[in-house]
Each structure stands twice: as C-alpha cells, then as structure tokens.
Design a protein around this nucleic acid. Structure first.
Lengths: 243, 243
DNA sequence: TGCAGAAATTGGTTGGACCATTGAACCACT
DNA sequence: AGTGGTTCAATGGTCCAACCAATTTCTGCA
C-alpha cells in the first residue's frame, strides 16, 4: 500500500511532506473518506520526524482537508491535488446578533445565486436528490410539528452541491455552525422557520422548471422570512448579553 | 427511543491554547505586526508542552493569522478575536479556467446582494464616495482607452463597503488576488471589460434611486458581461496548458 | 565611532517515551 | 445466536530533552 513514498530532500520540511502526501494521494487515487498512512509510517518513509509529519497534517486539518481520529487513523475529507488554491478566510466578529445578520446576508447572496445556477446546471440525478431531501423535510415538518432544521439544512446543501461550484458548499459549510447555534435556540419564537417552509417547494419547482430567475427570486423570499423571524426573536428577548 | 443525545465534548488541548492566546491578544491589545510571546514562554505559562503550542500556532499560521520568523519570533498578521469565523476554501486546480469561473460566480452572488443592500442602506457620504469612484473610473476609461482595472476595482470596493456588512468586503478582498491575476492578463481579448463599462453607471443610478431590485439586476448584468469576455478569452487561446 | 565576531534568542527538527481512544478479537454467560 | 465484558494491538495526542539554523543583540577591538 505504501510503496510510493520517496524520501524528502529540500528545506521547508513540512511543506515538502505535504507535497509528497499530495503525490501519494494522487498515486493511490484516494478520494474523500480514504485512509492515509499512519503518522509513524509516514515519518519513517519520508525520513522525517513524526513531529514534522504532525505539523504538516495539522496544516491540512486546519484547511479542512483531513480529519484525524485518535485510535483510528487520519482520513481524507475532501479531494486533494498537488496544485490547489487555498484561500483561508477568517472573518472578524460574529457571535452577537449583528454578526448573525451579517452572515445571513452572505447566505442570502449565495443561496440566491446557487439556486439560479442549479436551475441551469442540475442534472437529473441531482434534481432527484434535491427532491428527495425536500420530501424528507416536508415529512419531518408534518411529523414533528415544524422541527425540521436538520432536514432543512440538507435540502439547502443539496442545492449548493448541485450548483456545480464547490465554493458555495465550502463557504456555507463554514457558516453552518454559526447559523445552527441560533437555529437550535429559536429565540423564543415558537414557530421559528415556519414562514420559510412553503418556499422550499417553490424553489424546487423553479429549479425543476429550469427557471433560474424564478429560483433566485424564491430563494430571496425564503431568506427574507428567516430574517423576519430573527428580528422578531431579537425583539422578544433582549439579546444584549453577547456570547 | 429518544435519539436526542448530544455529542460529548472532550478536552481539546491545542484549541484551548488558541483560545488562551486569543484572550492574550485582546488583553494586550495587540494588532497586526504585534509580537506574541515565544513558544517556550507560552509552553511554560500555559503548562503545556512546546509541541502543543507549536501545533496550535501551526493552525493559525495555516489560516494566515500569524507569521513565524525563525530566530526572531512569531508575529500577528491580522486582527484576531476570540470569536472568529474561519472559512478555509480550497479550489482544486486553482489555475485553470474552471477555477476562475467558480470564483466569478461567487463574486456575482456577492456583488448583486451588496448592490441591493447598498441601495437600501448607503448614506449620503457613502453615496458621494461611490459616485466619486465612478467618475474616476469613467475618466480613466476615456483617457487610457479602456484600461481602468484599478479604478474599476475601487468602485466595486466602495459599494461593498457601503453595504453596511463588513463580510462582503472581507470575502471579496480575499479573492481579489485571484481575480486580478486574470484581469491583468486579458487572455488576448483586447477590449476586455469594455462591455461591462456602462453597467457601472446604471448600478449607481439604481443605488442612488434607492432601488435594490434594480441594482441587483444591473449587477447581475455586469458580471454576465465579464463572464462572456472570459469565455471569449478562453476560446481564443487554448488554456489547456495548466500552470 | 564603526564594525566584525561572539553570544544569546527563537523558531525548526529530531528521537524517544508515555497516555487516551479506538476497534477488533476473544470470551463467558445467557 | 446474542449480549455484554475483557484483552490487546494500533493510532493519534502529549510530553520531554536535546540539537540545528536563522536572527538579533551584545561586546570588544580598531
């Protein structure tokens, strides 16, 4: 399994380690979920210390390329190729109400564009997948009386994925935690998210009808309802306590 | 069965280090360029191994938050606060045409939304600033026969800034380098960007008229012309030679 | 005063050790 | 057959004590 791992020679050790690893991944045709060699094996094969290997892997972990599971191993989380463009974005501010509204505006921008692109590009398989997620969401909505946040999220994710542009999903995934924290804490608004419910179906209809402008418009309406809910929630309980 | 069992939260050493470090930065009011304590000091003060400190710093270095200079020290490269949103974006094969189109689609999403928000929120001062940038751009366009990329960029930046949401400017600034690389290399299309010229004025008019939907539509048209230019360029010179 | 060289500082790397978690194999009992 | 417990090897996580390499600071001589 680990036959293709030539030793390292240049300076900038950990970068060299990453390059070698990227080559290894390509050589072995490893995809997401694939398991890469243990740190001890890598250290031995590449003729570097295990600490150096760890620093390199820490970099990849920070970029979301790799996941380490103690006792199990290190696994790929995304496709990696030797020539990749890394664009680490760190955005200031974000835990207060204004920060949430800011991220929601970003989400509105991306959601609208992704829906439009999806209406143009989605293949039959992607379309079916989106509809499946939509059905699941609607069923959960009926059954659990409105608590369908997970299924809701998966529906949107399917759209982002079908947009044909991986950046959408990556950006939105980074923001997920932030949205979710509030989503699970409905701010005292009992029917939080209810208003957005019908728009999921209308968005899908526009996508299925290959109507990008319509899909964009419906996505905008959906986010608008979420914004309204959030504003109502903020009015209900005073959110002066940051954190 | 109640499947409501929250995932357990175990201690994460290096994350704790980063949190402590973020607190330290805030405490000392360190800004970009500031020098933070040496690894040995940190290890001693935080009662962790120097290795752990290094792994934590490696993460921050990967995110572009920090720069290490051997023999000198570790310095801040950006403002850091305890609550930050990290968004590591990786684009497979970032140098090819598809990658550029992907980023352009993100830009279209943000540009449209920012223009709409701008039409709602921009104050008189922001409006005047945008118009000033627009005048500068049009003048440069006339004088230098179409080469107005810098002024063009500043116009868009002014809109992002006036949107009232700092995330727009931050995201787009991080992608600037990527756009610019191609912008400066017009791919053999001599009148690259000419088609987009009139839309700058129409966008501004919509913003000044407080017409968010109109501004959004005009922004979409503008990016569409840029996309067309790019596609023409890609057709002209074969971009099959990666890197 | 000016500057070359020594010394101290600091990040980079190494090797080895031990801990904590995981997962598989195995076993006892029902 | 299945359930639960135990053992054990593999693997990532942490620690330590050095040493290397680049940089900065200090020192002493001209």
């Amino acid at each position: 399994m680990t036959d293709f791992l030539p030793p390292i020679q240049t300076t900038a050790r950990d970068d060299a380690v990453l390059k070698a690893l990227a080559g290894f991944v390509r050589q072995e045709a490893l995809g997401p979920g694939g398991k890469l060699p243990t740190e001890r094996i890598l250290a031995e094969r590449l003729k570097v210390s295990r600490n150096t290997v760890r620093e390199a892997l820490t970099r990849w972990e920070g970029l979301g390329l790799v996941e380490r599971r103690q006792g199990s191993g290190t696994y790929l989380k995304a496709a990696v190729s030797p020539d990749m463009l890394h664009m680490p974005l760190t955005l200031a501010g974000g835990n207060d109400f204004a920060g949430l509204m800011s991220t929601l505006e970003i989400r509105r921008a991306l959601e609208a564009e992704a829906a439009a692109l999806c209406a143009i590009r989605a293949g039959k398989a992607e379309l079916a997948e989106i509809e499946r997620k939509l059905d699941l969401m609607e069923e959960a909505f009926q059954t659990r009386a409105g608590m369908s946040s997970d299924e809701d999220w998966e529906f949107h994710q399917a759209i982002f994925r079908a947009s044909g542009n991986p950046l959408f999903e990556q950006i939105i995934a980074a923001m997920y935690e932030l949205f979710h924290r509030f989503w699970e804490h409905p701010l005292g608004v009992r029917d939080f998210g209810h208003a957005s419910f019908p728009y999921h179906r209308t968005i899908f209809n526009c996508i299925a009808a290959r109507d990008p402008d319509g899909a964009r418009a419906e996505a905008l309406k959906l986010i608008a309802t979420v914004e309204d809910d959030l504003k109502r929630g903020a009015a209900n309980l005073k959110l002066s306590d940051r954190r």
